[in-house]
Write a protein that binds this DNA or RNA. Structure first.
Length: 197
DNA sequence: ATCTCGATTCCCT
DNA sequence: GGGAATCGAGATT
């Protein structure tokens, strides 16, 4: 049984781009009645609220869905896209609607459960995409608005960051977002086999 | 009340 | 590499 240590609240207290990189190597843990499933975060994307055309909170757009983006750093922002649930880490200060999308993880705990949830597909395809990893880990809209500090959904200490080679590039799936399309706000662990396409 | 379109995935060619 | 699936949030009427 792996002992999970949630990262301290102060961990979230840094700039969005910095946090997006620091999240790499951390472990995303989800507890459900079926069991615990977890994975190392290997790919993230930063969305910078007011000035980022690709963000749901562009221009400080505040709706029922984006409401939690204005909450404190470390809050869970889930939303549904094409029937898939995507999970984000809210960051920056209260009132500043930034968030970081978790795009891929490397399976750690509960692999049998993940295999079942992913319909017996090859392990490589369990968590190599933002909608896939939520299904494998059992993350749902129920987690919306909670905090990553407490169960059932947590971000815990994982790999030491200094062993990782981090690469950056443009974000994915936002071609209709004007200039923001080209910002290099996607971060991923070099050569990791679970990076999304 | 209705319309549009997507921070995706899967299957098919 | 391309297109359908599929549904709800947000915008419009």
């Amino acid at each position: 049984m792996i002992q999970y240590k949630p990262v301290l609240p102060i961990f979230y207290n840094k700039s969005t781009l910095e946090l997006a990189q620091n999240l790499l190597g951390c472990v995303l843990v989800k507890e459900t009645e079926e069991g615990v499933a977890s994975g190392y975060i290997v790919e993230t994307e930063a969305y910078m609220g007011p000035d980022d055309q690709a963000a749901h909170s562009f221009g400080n757009r505040r709706t029922k869905r984006t409401e939690v983006m204005f909450d404190q750093a470390g809050t869970v922002y889930t939303y549904t896209m094409h029937t898939h649930t995507l999970v984000n880490v809210v960051c920056a200060g209260v009132g500043i609607p930034h968030a970081i999308l978790i795009r891929a993880v490397e399976p750690l705990d509960g692999q049998e459960l993940m295999g079942v949830r992913r319909s017996g597909r090859p392990k490589k395809e369990w968590t190599n995409g933002p909608g896939k990893l939520t299904k494998a880990l059992g993350i749902k809209m129920d987690d919306y608005g909670k905090h990553f500090m407490k169960p059932p959904l947590m971000i815990c200490e994982g790999w030491p960051t200094d062993i990782l080679t981090i690469q950056a590039g443009p974000r994915i799936g936002i071609d209709n977002s004007g200039e923001a399309r080209d910002y290099p706000w996607r971060f991923y662990v070099a050569d990791n086999p679970f990076i999304s396409k």
